[in-house]
Design a protein around this nucleic acid. Structure first.
Length: 428
RNA sequence: GGGGAGAUUCCAGAGUGGCCAAAUGGGGCAGACUGUAAAUCUGUUGCGAAAGCUUCGGAGGUUCGAAUCCUCCUCUCCCCA
C-alpha cells in the first residue's frame, strides 16, 4: 500500500485535510467516498478531478466509493452559488444518475474480485424512504442551526441578502447523513471532495462524532484554476463533457492541446497517472523546446485515452495532424471516405444538392445561401476579404468561384473559417 | 405604502429631436507574428452589392423627422416606512 497523501501532495491535489488522516490511511486499507451531483447527463472535465482522486485512492490500495447524488441532486447544493437553483424533475434526475453511473465505471475498477474494488452507491437508496419526521428527529437533533449557519457557504448567502430556502439550507445535513450512513454501513471513514465541499464534509464528520463518537476524516482537493483567471473547463462553446456525444473526442483532445504552458504543467499532474519522473522529464523537455508542446501533447494523449480510449485518441490525433499539419491540402485529398468521415465527426455539416455546382458559384453566395456555412453574406464576404476562409485547406478569396473541382471523395468539401472552425459540405 | 433612479446594439456605458446603425471600453471573430500558446500590432463586429431595410424594455401618440418629446404598460435598482 502506497502513501496516497504523498501522491496527492506532489500532484498539487491537496487543499485541506482533517488532522490524523495520514496516520489513519497508513495504518491499513480504508474506504473513502466522493459524491457526484447529477446535474447533467454527463460528467465534465471538472468532475474528472474527483474521479482521479478516487483513482489514486484505489491505486494506493484503498477502497473507493463513488456516490451519485440521486437524493442530494433533488435539493441542490447552495455552496458558493449565489442564487437558488432550479430543481430538476425526477425523470431527468433518474436519467442523469444512470448516465453518470455508466461513465464512472470506465475510470475505476468496479468489477474485479479485489477487496478494494470500487463501489457505486446512490444516496437516493437510503434517503428516499427516510421520512421527514424521522430524519429531523434522528439526525437534525444532533446539529444546531448555529453550527449550520456558521458555514461559509451559508453565511455568504445570508450576508449578501440573497438568502436561501430551507431546502437548500438542509443540504449539508443530507450530505452529512450520507457520510454517516456510509460510515455506519460500509465502514467509509473518509470523504473526499472539492475545496468547496469542506463545510459539507465536516458536517458529516461532526454527525458521526456526535451520534456515535466515531472518527471520520475529510480531504479536499483544490479547485482547478486557469492561469489567466477564466473558468476552467469551459470554452466559448460551453463545458467540456466526457460524453463523446456532447464533446467529440477531437474537440476534447483539442481542449488539452490548447492549454497554456503554466496550466499544462499543473494539469498533467492532476489529470494523468503519469509518474513523477515521467512528468518531470516532460516538463524539462517542454522547457527546452516549448514550441514542441511536449506537455500539452502528453496531457492530451493521456486524458483522451483515459476518457475515450486509444482508438478515439488516434483518430483525434490524426485529425489534428491533418487540420493543423503542413502538407494538408494533398493529404486531405488523399483520404478515403471512411477516414475522412471519422476525422470530421462532430464537425457541423450541411447537405447540398449537386446541382448547385453545375455552374461555377460565387463563393459568397455559395457559403451563405447555398450551404449555410456563414450566417450572412456580409460576414462571408468580410471573412473572404480578410483571407480567413479556406476551402479544402486552400486559402480562398471572394473572386474565386467554387466549382466541381473542389469536391473531395466525390461528394465532400471542407470549409475552414479561421484556424479552428470547420464546416463540412456533403453533396447529395 | 411613500419617494427617487433607470431599461441603448454580446457586455459595460455615451447619446437627450435631424450630422445615430448609434461614441468609447471590454469581449468576440479574423489577419500578421508565433508554438493551434501568451504578449503585441492591424482589421472587423445588425441585414443588404447598393438603394435601402430592421434595431435603442413593450404598446400607442406628437412631429416633415424620435434612441431622444408625450401617454400607458412591464421589469430592475436605491432610499424612507
Amino acid at each position: 500500500m502506497s502513501n496516497v497523501i504523498e501522491e496527492l501532495r506532489w500532484r498539487g491535489m491537496l487543499h485541506d485535510l482533517t488532522p490524523g488522516i495520514e496516520d489513519h490511511l497508513t495504518n491499513g486499507p480504508r474506504s473513502a467516498y466522493l459524491g457526484f451531483d447529477p446535474t447533467a447527463d454527463s460528467l465534465h472535465i471538472g468532475h474528472l478531478v474527483g474521479v482521479m482522486t478516487l483513482l489514486h485512492f484505489q491505486r494506493s490500495g484503498h477502497k473507493p466509493y463513488a456516490l451519485v447524488g440521486g437524493a442530494t441532486g433533488m435539493i441542490g447544493d447552495p455552496s458558493f452559488k449565489s442564487t437558488e437553483r432550479n430543481l430538476l424533475n425526477k425523470e431527468t434526475l433518474q436519467h442523469n444518475v444512470e448516465c453518470i453511473k455508466r461513465q464512472l465505471t470506465k475510470f475505476l475498477d468496479f468489477s474485479s474480485d479485489k477487496k478494494n474494488r470500487a463501489e457505486l452507491v446512490n444516496n437516493y437508496d437510503w434517503m428516499a424512504g427516510y421520512s421527514f419526521l424521522d430524519f429531523i428527529r434522528d439526525i437534525g437533533k444532533h446539529i444546531t442551526v448555529n453550527y449550520m449557519m456558521a458555514k461559509d457557504s451559508v453565511k455568504k448567502r445570508l450576508e449578501d441578502g440573497s438568502g436561501l430556502s430551507f431546502t437548500e439550507f438542509s443540504y449539508q445535513l443530507i450530505q452529512g447523513y450520507d457520510f454517516y450512513y456510509l460510515w455506519k454501513h460500509h465502514q467509509v471513514t473518509i470523504q473526499l471532495g472539492g475545496s468547496d465541499q469542506w463545510g459539507n464534509i465536516v458536517t458529516g464528520t461532526e454527525l458521526i462524532r456526535r451520534i456515535e463518537g466515531g472518527n471520520a476524516y475529510a480531504l479536499t482537493v483544490p479547485l482547478v484554476t486557469k492561469s489567466d483567471g477564466t473558468k476552467f473547463g469551459k470554452t466559448e462553446t460551453g463545458n467540456i463533457w466526457l460524453d463523446a456525444k456532447k464533446t467529440s473526442p477531437y474537440a476534447f483532445y483539442q481542449f488539452w492541446i490548447n492549454v497554456s504552458d503554466d496550466d499544462a504543467a499543473r494539469y498533467i499532474k492532476i489529470f494523468t497517472t503519469l509518474t513523477k519522473d515521467e512528468i518531470e522529464s516532460l516538463i524539462a523537455e517542454h522547457q527546452k523546446a516549448p514550441h514542441h508542446r511536449a506537455l500539452q501533447k502528453a496531457l492530451g494523449r493521456e486524458v483522451t485515452v483515459l476518457v475515450h480510449g486509444l482508438q478515439e485518441y488516434q483518430t483525434a490525433l490524426k485529425a489534428t495532424e491533418i487540420l493543423f499539419g503542413k502538407s494538408s491540402a494533398e493529404e486531405l485529398a488523399s483520404l478515403d471516405e471512411k477516414t475522412f468521415l471519422q476525422i470530421f465527426e462532430g464537425v457541423p455539416m450541411a447537405e447540398v444538392s449537386k446541382l448547385s455546382l453545375h455552374e461555377p458559384s460565387d463563393p459568397v453566395v455559395f457559403l451563405t445561401d447555398v450551404t449555410g456555412a456563414f450566417p450572412s453574406r456580409g460576414e462571408a464576404r468580410r471573412m473572404l476579404q480578410q483571407g480567413a476562409v479556406q476551402i479544402n485547406k486552400i486559402r480562398w478569396n471572394e473572386h474565386q468561384p467554387v466549382t466541381k473541382n473542389q469536391i473531395l471523395n466525390g461528394r465532400y468539401m471542407l470549409i475552414q473559417k479561421g484556424k479552428k472552425n470547420y464546416f463540412l459540405i456533403k453533396l447529395v
